[in-house]
Design a protein around this nucleic acid. Structure first.
Lengths: 335, 335
DNA sequence: CTGAAAGCGCTTACAG
DNA sequence: CTGAAAGCGCTTACAG
């Protein structure tokens, strides 16, 4: 792990015949330096192959130019998009991003948070695991580093947050299915301890009730938030004596799994059984058939979270913000 | 960007009534300290909420516990898997990963490399952009930081490298199509200035020649390495007076686009036209129809690259290694 | 602009 | 185990 000796600002100053303080001003882009001096110093930097040591600078000035981003699964296109939004906003602002993935393990989340704090990140954007993880963020609060939650909230935790209104989104999806004449609608996928699941469930129930339909608990099946989870869930529900005619899925990934499971069983999604997803992934229009889904604006969530974080860094004492994006139903051929 | 004052080792030492040197030993897990002393110090750390400052430690000891990973596109499942392999291997070893995405822009790649060097990463894993970027890695060589290339090589650059044998892979794919009786086989997607493309093209041509078939340049169409690129490429080739009966695609993403383009044109992939991909993404078996493809072991490439990097960090002077994984054909229903 | 000094939070080396 | 000192590569503050 040991590196060879780097060229330091001291070396550059000596080479250019100026003081270290002057060189320091130049490297930080001060305009108060005579052009001639600046050029001389910049030439020396090039000649010596100087590379600015941002770590040392940050340490001395007690600042940070890194941000930690913790997501649950990079293989989920939703998070890939969210990452993109975060990267775009923060790299423009000069931050570099530490990425960590929890795969929905709380232990992993705790480890990642600890490591990021040790690396003196300037702030953390956390997409929490679905398990309750109030205590995970204790260390962050204690050391008082800016934190923004995204996608899922943590119950009884006050923090900046960006997400979408899952309840309304779920309601829109289920209403749509009801309007198409469906009466037995399943809700498949996701795990019941996450707020993101609870809110969807709430929306699902509200829509059914408003239409005067019974809630059949046997049509609500949890699963991991993966294609495999979706396949498993739909298999369970197909074997009921009175199977559903439509499925509202936790997200697009699960919906994809559900469609594959239906194919396997010789059923055609969108014809034999309607399927609606959640997220509006890049891939959703490319599924077969193209997936009706609720847009959850992954990239926008990412860039908004980045923006909240920057604002919090600038002004640590302002009130917590909660940004709830309004979802939109995108109707395609699967319903 | 300024942070509130942290608890330092000094504070901990004072609180526990030991010297700073002792506290430093304990925090690094030395076994040479009496258990009683250690417990006392660990208690103080907990009580004060001490967080180890890895940045300061790395600076003093001239070491690094960060790694830069530069990929082209996180929305490509191939890279999501590769990232997973890298993360898994490096996090176990105590490294934290800076992630950067170039979206195949050389300028972005240069910026990311510069930034990572400024952050004193202990090494870089680079999946180069397809454009020739020999000069991009000049700064890395100059400052003498361990570098591993993955997925694509850079011509005339000597470095550790992990990739697969694209030529053999392409040959396997095209041979397979020939054995199925195809005579007009297109090669769609990718950009001709990358080694990864050149090697595939080489394999494509070799297979055709060995079978005594002509190479028809009009059946070779470049595109961006995305689904959209694949859709565009297949549209072009379908309008030929003598269209192909089979398509070998640059990768699975392109193949997916090709299949969508075929659907659009009323053709059924795997029936009207055979399609073969490259990568064996997670998603390939889930396409419709399931995609015949060449496995390129994304996660393995990632973990091997991580392993090469660690070895290079330990021993900077050893010979450059080239790991070329052997591809494997996975036959499914699309061909 | 310069120059000398102090300090960010650690580790290192050494005498006791 | 302790204690005092030096140093990693910067920035900061200040007198000139």
């Amino acid at each position: 792990m040991t590196q060879k000796k780097r060229v330091t600002l001291q070396d550059v100053a000596e080479h250019a015949g100026v003081s270290r303080a002057t060189a320091s001003l130049i490297v930080r882009g001060s305009t108060k330096i005579a052009e001639k001096t600046r050029d001389k110093v910049l030439d020396s930097m090039r000649e010596l192959g100087y590379v600015y040591d941002r770590v040392a600078a940050n340490m001395r000035s007690q600042s940070s130019s890194t941000i930690g981003l913790i997501i649950t699964d990079i293989a989920n296109p939703f998070y890939a998009e969210l990452l993109r939004g975060v990267h775009q906003a923060l790299e423009e602002a000069g931050y570099t991003v530490f990425l960590g993935t929890t795969y929905d393990s709380k232990m992993k989340q705790d480890q990642l948070i600890a490591r990021m704090l040790e690396h003196r990140v300037g702030g953390i954007i956390l997409c929490p695991v679905s398990e309750d993880s109030k205590d995970s963020i204790e260390p962050v609060k204690q050391i008082d580093i800016p934190l923004v939650l995204a996608v899922r909230e943590i119950e009884n935790v006050s923090s900046d947050y960006v997400g979408i209104d899952y309840e309304v989104g779920a309601q829109m999806a289920v209403n749509h299915l009801i309007h198409r004449g469906h009466r037995r609608i399943a809700f498949l996928g996701g795990t019941s301890h996450s707020t993101a699941w609870k809110e969807r469930r709430q929306g699902y129930c509200t829509a059914l009730k408003q239409a005067g339909l019974e809630i059949d608990e046997s049509l609500i099946i949890e699963s991991s938030v993966t294609r495999e989870g979706g396949m498993g869930a739909v298999r369970q529900v197909l074997f009921k004596s009175n199977p559903p005619t439509a499925v509202f899925c936790f997200n697009d990934l699960v919906a994809h799994g559900v469609m594959l499971g239906l194919n396997e069983a010789g059923l055609q999604p969108g014809k034999d059984i309607a399927v609606v997803g959640f997220d509006n992934n890049n891939e959703a229009p490319l599924y077969n058939p193209p997936l009706t889904t609720v847009s959850s604006y992954a990239r926008l969530i990412g860039s908004q979270a980045a923006s909240l974080l920057q604002q919090r860094i600038v002004n640590p004492d302002r009130d917590h913000q909660r940004i709830i994006l309004q979802p939109e139903l995108v109707v395609r051929k699967s319903s």
